[in-house]
Design a protein around this nucleic acid. Structure first.
Lengths: 195, 195
DNA sequence: CCCGAATCTGACGTTGACGTTAAGATTAGG
DNA sequence: CCTAATCTTAACGTCAACGTCAGATTCGGG
């Protein structure tokens, strides 16, 4: 039972029941005034918002993680009840997915992820307020150009990682071939069943 | 000055002078009886061994890290002086490189890396003691087969990661294209210099 | 043989990313 | 309106992977 090299990382302790969505109790969607949907707000149109429990379950993370992301400014729930309870949209959930992606795939820490997300948000804002805003075209050009630069920078680091993984994979394949050779050599010397 | 998204991770605090090899003082190679070179021992033939300072500098990690790796059983220096000071071979240094690779590329933790390295060592031992050892061919076959299985398992996780990175990259490219479109749109509306 | 540089072994400190209570507030269904 | 379920903030705990002393020991050149 050594089949546990990778593909965990999310099961340190975590008692939190972790139900994958709608398991027993209701806790389901609710509707609330998702204020300030204009400009930079995630949260589509009239979709059902989730409480932190359901959102965490959907996203596959803990409630604590969601609150922590909020503390660091990575993810502000698109709305909240008058009493101060967080309400997450589907867009919020996918944002969590992106955070996890940047974490596990690229190995960025949350501060770095915050930077990346901020720039992505900026681009979205530019796109949204493309003519609404009363900014000059020069402003727009500057912002877009800067975001382009940053995205390309990210792209180059990702590509470097990809190249590294490729060479790693090639190395591994070579090792596997050698192992297979050895195995065949032994098998030839003292043959056993083959499939 | 936002050009710091990735490509650091090794500069938290770290006062340790971090000289890249031969900077001021001597501390260079030394010769000592590298005991037990047979069977599983890294440490080529009559190469010069390094003290922990030089080794750490070469490998680009701290001395503490090297000692820590040893504690966890990831890397035992191929030799040591009668007084108990560690001596590292070039093979040891590349082992450190592999450790870092598994860390940063695949995001494995040191325990998982220990498992991987142990299996790689096992394979090397099998190769070395291919006829020297007085094991039966069945033994050899079993070991090689097991290692093959494990290597293929690792390979599949690596490939999954590669696929994930590829799709990430594709997504990023799409974003970049859209950004470029916006930029061109604005440039058309209010043209500035182009290069 | 001596001395300064390098290294040794503890042992405690740090940092990021949460986990885990605790005690009180909010919500939604009946 | 009541109550169980869900959520809130605040605070402390944890774990990996080292960083950072401190005091003793070892090495190697003169």
């Amino acid at each position: 039972m050594d089949a546990r090299i990778a593909s965990r990382k999310g099961q340190r302790k975590a008692r939190e029941k972790r139900m994958t969505a709608g398991d027993a109790v209701h806790q389901g969607p609710a509707r609330y005034g998702r204020r300030r949907t204009g400009a930079g707000g995630r949260g589509g149109g009239g979709e059902a918002l989730l409480g932190i429990g359901a959102a965490a379950a959907q996203a596959g993370v803990s409630q604590r993680a969601l609150r922590y992301y909020q503390q660091l400014g990575l993810l502000t729930p698109c709305s909240s009840t008058p009493g101060g309870m967080r309400r997450y949209s589907e867009a919020d959930i996918s944002r969590v997915a992106r955070i996890r992606q940047l974490q596990t795939l690229l190995g960025l820490n949350l501060d770095e992820i915050a930077i990346v997300l901020r720039h992505e948000d900026r681009m979205a804002a530019i796109k949204d307020a493309y003519r609404d805003e009363h900014a000059t075209d020069a402003d727009r050009r500057g912002l877009a150009a800067e975001s382009l630069r940053l995205q390309q920078e990210l792209r180059s680091t990702v590509q470097a990682k990809r190249a590294a993984i490729d060479s790693f994979l090639a190395d591994l394949d070579e090792r596997i071939l050698r192992t297979r050779d050895i195995l065949e050599g032994v098998a030839a010397a003292s043959p056993a069943r083959e499939d």
